[in-house]
Amino acid sequence: MLKPKEIISPQTPNRRGYETGAVGAVGGQEADGLQSSARKYPSVTVDQKFPIIQFERLKEQSILGRGGFAYVMKARHLDWKQDVAVKCLLTRQIEGSEQEVLYSEARKLNLGSRSDHVISLLGVCLDPNFAIVMPYMENGSLAGLLRDVDVPWALRWRMAHEISLGMTFLHCQNPQILHCDLKAENVLLDGDFHVKISDFGLSKWKMRSRVVTQTSPEGSTITHAPPEYFLDINLVPTPMFDVYSFGVLLWEIITRAEPYGNAMNSALIRLAVTSGQRPDLTLIPTDREDVTSVSQLMQTCWSQTPEDRPTFQACADHLITVTSRSSKEDILQAIIDVMKARKN
């Protein structure tokens, strides 16, 4: 099964979000509570000192999404006076493998929090069930924005560049963090439309929920998976997997369309991709120099041979030359235009 590689970081975590007076091996349980949690969540108590958040201090506001055994809700932290996103197990009957998926995601977020372009971990809840708490992104996903608004090019390029920076950070960790499900739905946007890469555990949830219409049996999204993924069932993912997905994501940013939207089923997409077909290039504008430049990078990213694809460092270098052509005033005006368009 393809999923982000496990991360064990020796670094002391960011202590934002620790409850007042937090003590103990998991960062915020009194002795009796810690012993109980150690029995229920043994891997949590022997690993990093996560910030512990009391679940009862979170007031649910709405459900943002559901997976196979987890859901995401928007909540209000009653003490912090701020909105947060909470990813919880659907049931209180803990299965070790399910809790481990969510816990593994928390570990990656704890490390990724050091990047400005990866969603951060505010803390974890242990009771009544395991949950991870993240900042609430008020501007939703990049997919939603592209669907609703004709985003000005200056802002599109800034977001593309920030995605490349976030992925560069993840790939530079030792060991590396591979996302394996990079797409517009998994790129969140904060209040100023800055990028936050998210959903490191989503692909495994999709497998468990048996959602396979747009995902492979192993969980990664069919439309964004590279040809080698379909040709070798025993494939171990590499950084070039994410680079290929980024190429398709750049196509999404340029066209505001759904890749392979006319395909009848996932089997046709598999066949097309392995034979060298890609998302429709006729939808790419040909009258803009910046679009042409990014389109060239896009096509290199989704090269049939993994060795021909660039690193994310190279992608970031390419995209900074594109985004630097826009001034800060251009980007601010783009944000204003997007906010106005969303109100209409």
Rank of each mutant, 00 (worst) to 15 (best):
L111F: 09
G112P: 05
G112T: 06
S113F: 05
R114Y: 07
S115V: 00
V118K: 04
V118M: 01
I119A: 08
L122D: 14
L122T: 08
L122I: 14
G123H: 11
V124K: 10
V124T: 07
D127T: 12
D127Q: 10
P128Y: 15
P128W: 09
N129S: 11
N129R: 11
F130K: 15
F130S: 12
F130M: 14
A131F: 10
A131M: 11
I132F: 09
P135Q: 11
P135R: 13
Y136S: 14
Y136P: 08
M137L: 14
E138C: 08
N139V: 04
N139K: 07
G140Q: 10
S141I: 01
A143N: 12
A143W: 01
A143L: 05
L145G: 00
R147D: 10
D148R: 07
D150Y: 05
D150A: 04
V151T: 01
V151L: 00
V151F: 00
W153D: 12
W153Y: 15
A154N: 07
A154F: 03
L155G: 05
L155S: 11
L155P: 06
R156H: 02
W157N: 06
M159H: 15
M159L: 12
I163H: 03
I163E: 14
S164C: 09
L165K: 06
G166Q: 15
M167K: 07
T168E: 08
T168Y: 10
F169Y: 09
L170Y: 02
H171D: 10
H171R: 15
H171E: 09
C172A: 13
Q173F: 00
N174H: 03
P175D: 10
P175K: 14
Q176P: 11
L178Q: 07
H179K: 11
H179N: 12
D181L: 08
L182W: 00
L182C: 01
A184N: 09
A184T: 13
E185G: 09
N186A: 01
N186L: 06
N186E: 02
N186R: 04
V187Q: 02
L188Q: 02
L189W: 13
L189Q: 01
L189H: 07
D190K: 06
K196Y: 11
I197N: 11
S198H: 00
D199C: 04
D199S: 14
F200P: 14
F200M: 03
F200D: 04
K204E: 04
W205L: 13
K206T: 04
K206E: 12
R208A: 13
R208Y: 11
R210K: 05
R210Q: 12
V211C: 06
V212S: 10
Q214A: 10
Q214N: 13
Q214M: 06
Q214L: 15
G219M: 03
S220L: 02
S220A: 12
I222T: 12
T223K: 02
A225R: 00
A225V: 00
P226K: 01
P227M: 00
P227S: 00
E228Q: 05
Y229A: 02
F230D: 05
F230A: 12
F230M: 04
I233T: 10
I233P: 04
N234T: 10
N234D: 05
L235R: 14
L235T: 05
V236P: 07
P237G: 11
P237W: 00
T238D: 09
T238H: 09
V243Q: 02
V243E: 04
